[in-house]
Write a protein that binds this DNA or RNA. Structure first.
Lengths: 172, 172
DNA sequence: TATTGTTATACTCTATAACTATA
DNA sequence: TATAGTTATAGAGTATAACAATA
């Protein structure tokens, strides 16, 4: 039973709600665009984009998961979906036979290219149009710190279950 | 075919990724806590919390939807789920026979009370612990403006479909 | 024994379309 | 004719547990 924390003040509530609502609205708009332009879900886009930025367009499953997907089976599902469409290939990793290397294909890069202009357009219209240069810099700084903190945060005492990336616990 | 926009610069990309990742990590952690503490999804929590802050604990379906749910059937589904658990009641609105008034019950408020301390605890640990007072104020200001802008943004020319709250278009 | 990944399964959630009823 | 909401239905996504294989 957690001891009652001091309630949030008005500014904290404002920041929290604004974060949730803004990210939700933005994500919803982006998801629609990705769906229409390339028949991609947001997660699929994130996976493709991550691969596109990786050396040789490749990544191990476990490394791919980080921050994008929260269960290993979820990643397998998405990787299979992308593979069926020919947007990625999967093959055993050379160094570690347990690992699977996922690689983006030319078709995958093509879909990324199809989707990118509209994606950037949405961001400009919805997010950056309302913000000054200083605002964007402040956001990158503040939310970057928040993200880094959350990434390294241990599971809560009240909920000592699995946590972290798709490669997380789950000792079978 | 959208004209290619100028690509985002490094700071804009940083702000975008930080926003998506931070909100995703935070939301995931909060969803786990809500599930464990009160068997609530995030959407259900938002609906209950909205009702809890409303006069008489009541709201019309359409007003409830705003910003939380993006389709009318989705709201009906969640309202039914909450009603089955006895956390809300639904009844025809007095003034407009077409409308349905949703009201939080004592049981609903009790669940909210069960869930709240842990909810606030997560926010403190994951979000506010990494931020200064000035950071929180800046976030509330900047993201508040971004949210307000997104709320009033018209559908994109490239995707002139439905948009806005669950009460949106869809002319049946 | 720990790690990497897959499979089976069950469930939650969302969205579209068709429909009813009231304004 | 427009608005408020429901229903049917189908599909996408997620998570848990059990499993196989390699380190």
């Amino acid at each position: 039973m957690p001891s009652a924390p001091r309630p949030l003040d008005a500014t904290q509530l404002g920041a929290y709600f604004a974060l949730i609502e803004a990210s939700s609205l933005l994500r919803h708009a982006v998801e629609q665009q990705l769906h229409e332009a390339g028949d991609l879900s947001y997660v699929q886009f994130q996976l493709l984009a991550t691969l596109g930025d990786s050396p040789a367009g490749s990544r191990r499953m476990t490394d791919l998961a980080d921050g994008v997907v929260y269960s290993r089976s979820g990643l397998t599902y998405q990787a299979q979906t992308l593979e069926k469409r020919g947007l990625v290939t999967r093959s055993p990793s050379p160094d570690d036979e347990r690992s699977v290397t996922v690689t983006i294909t030319d078709a995958g890069r093509a879909v990324l290219a199809d989707v990118f202009p509209g994606h950037v357009g949405i961001l400009e219209e919805l997010l950056f149009a309302a913000l000054s240069r200083a605002d964007v810099e402040a956001l990158a700084d503040i939310l970057g710190r928040a993200r880094d903190h959350m990434r390294q945060a241990p599971p809560r005492s009240a909920a000592p279950r699995r946590r972290r990336s798709a490669a997380g616990r789950t000792p079978g």
